Each structure stands twice: as C-alpha cells, then as structure tokens.
Amino acid sequence: MDRPIEFFRLDWCGRAVQLEYQWVGRADSQAPLVVFLHEGLGSVSMWKDFPARFCQAAHCRGLVYSRPGYGQSTPRHPDERWGVDFMHRQAFEVLPALLAALKIDPRQQQLWLFGHSDGASISLLYAARYPQALAGAIVLAPHIMVEDITIISIEQARDTYQTTDLPKKLSRYHQDVDSAFWGWNTIWLHPPFRAWSIEEELTTIQCPLLAVQGLDDEYGSLEQIRGLARRVPSTELLELPACGHSPHRDQPTTLITNASDFISRHTLGGEPR
C-alpha cells in the first residue's frame, strides 16, 4: 500500500527548501529500491500511479520525489535562475542529500534509478559520478546533448503555455506552476545551454542501463539513446513504436514488462526478492 506524502528539509542554494517524497510498492527492506526522477515539468503527482504499478510488477520498493521548484516542494525564489549545470547539481547535491536524509545507503541495498527526460539525464550523471552506487538504471528519453528538435519543441511549449490553458492544467501538479514551467523552459532556451552535453561524462558508468525512447519522441532523436549505448557498453536499448516523449504514458504495459524483466535479470540472486 502506498504511504502518504512526506517532506524533508534541505539547505540548498543558500536557503531552506522542503522536498516532497512518497514511498510506493513493497515495504520489504530487502527488496530492490527504485528511485523515480521526474521530467522537466513533472512531480510526484504527475507520475500518477505508474511507480506503484511498476513496483508491484517488479517486486520492488519505490521512492518518488519532486525536485526543488516542482510539485509540492518549495518553489523557486522569484529571482532564482538555474545555471547550465542545473542537472549536475541535482545529481551531485540534491539526490545524494535525499538518500542521506532517508538513510538509504547504496552499499547496503540494491539501488536503482528510474528517470524520465531531465530526470533520466540526472540519473546518468549520478551513475557516472558514483559508479559503484547503483545496481542499475532505467532511463526514459534521456538527454545526453541538445538537439534542434528539442529546442523547437521547448519553444512551442513556451508559446502554448502563454496562449492556452496549459498553466491551469499543470497547476493540478504544482503548487506554483510558473516556478515549475519557467525554471525548466528558461534554462533550456538560454543560448549558452545549446552547448550542454554529458557525452564524455557517460564513459565512467559501470552499472547496467536500459535506455528507452519512443520512435515519435518530439523532444529528441534516437541518437540520444544510441549515443549513450556507444559510450556505455552495459546499455540495452528499447525503441518503442507509437510512442512519444513519455513511454510510461504512451506504452506503459510494454515498458513495465521490459523494465521489470531488466531489473530481474540484473538483481542479485537472479530475481527480485
């Protein structure tokens, strides 16, 4: 049974912020633990029931959280502008602080990351910085560099946000929808961000990776996951037809089947406990 939303306090960027998190799936402390990292406009609630469904199928525990600026976590300060290294800071500062606060020690348990879009890139950066920390990672539509198709779609998202009821729709998932939207949109469209790339950093990853992307992804080409596979030999690819940028929404059954099998094959003892 899923537990209620909880919060923990983090001193970050010179001020105190609260992060919301929720446990889902099995309560067994010996089961593999999957930490879910949301997309650039995501949050705990925006995952809906996918983490619980996945953890039930994969026989895992799950931890879902909202990064600063998203969901019910502390919104961005009105003057706060994220830097080009914003995903690195999430991977090297916020995620380790969350694990430490919840007494999650990767040396003592089988820790997996399950990231989508920006969350997938953050997962890859964590795996690269801490190569011994993870049992594995599942990354949906990761960004390893910036492509023209990505910028065009993010520009279109900006126009949609300014001319339609998109803010009202997103407000169901964020206490401060402008904080969530403009934090993401502004940095991705910041000209210096066009040169952002984590391609060289990926080479230190040692854990198994399942990289998933839809054939109709409007935010990136298949070069994102194929480039990842060239740099990390432990990568398996899953390319999904009839699927856009969000495989967990467009092809949930196929994704759950393949990702839970991937965890099973790479779990100590041969299958999740």
Rank of each mutant, 00 (worst) to 15 (best):
P4G: 00
F7I: 01
F7D: 10
R15N: 14
R15M: 15
A16W: 14
V17Y: 02
Q18G: 14
L19R: 14
Y21M: 10
R26F: 00
A27P: 00
A27L: 03
A31V: 00
L37P: 09
E39M: 13
W47V: 02
F50C: 01
C60I: 01
G62C: 04
L63H: 06
V64I: 11
V64Y: 08
S66M: 13
P68Q: 11
P68W: 08
G69Y: 04
G71Q: 06
Q72A: 04
Q72T: 06
S73I: 06
T74Q: 13
H77S: 15
E80K: 11
R81Y: 15
R81S: 15
D85G: 11
F86D: 07
H88A: 08
R89D: 09
Q90L: 09
F92N: 10
E93S: 12
L95N: 03
P96F: 13
A100Y: 13
A100I: 14
A101I: 15
K103Y: 13
I104D: 11
Q109E: 11
Q110C: 13
Q110I: 11
L113D: 05
F114N: 09
G115M: 08
S117T: 03
D118I: 00
G119N: 06
S123L: 10
A128F: 06
A128M: 01
A128P: 02
Y130C: 10
Y130Q: 10
Y130N: 07
P131A: 02
A137M: 06
A137W: 15
V139P: 12
L140V: 14
L140T: 12
A141T: 15
A141W: 00
A141I: 14
P142M: 07
H143V: 00
I144Y: 10
M145Y: 00
E147P: 04
D148A: 05
I149T: 02
I149F: 01
S153V: 01
I154P: 08
A157R: 02
R158L: 02
T160Q: 08
T160E: 10
L166S: 01
P167K: 02
K169D: 02
K169S: 03
K169A: 06
L170D: 02
R172L: 01
Y173A: 05
H174Y: 03
H174D: 03
V177I: 08
D178G: 05
W182V: 02
W182A: 07
G183N: 09
W184F: 08
N185V: 11
T186I: 07
I187C: 10
L189R: 04
P191F: 10
P191S: 08
P192T: 08
P192R: 11
F193N: 14
F193W: 11
F193L: 09
F193Q: 12
W196R: 05
W196E: 02
W196Y: 03
W196H: 04
E199K: 12
E200L: 12
T203N: 12
T203K: 11
T204F: 10
T204I: 05
Q206T: 14
P208K: 11
A211D: 03
V212F: 15
G214M: 06
G214D: 07
L215E: 10
L215T: 09
D216A: 13
D217K: 04
G220P: 03
G220L: 04
L222F: 15
A229N: 14
R230E: 14
P233V: 04
T235V: 00
E236K: 10
L237T: 00
E239L: 13
C243Y: 11
G244Q: 12
H245N: 07
H245E: 07
P252H: 02
P252A: 00
P252W: 02
F262P: 06
T267S: 13
G270P: 07
P272H: 03
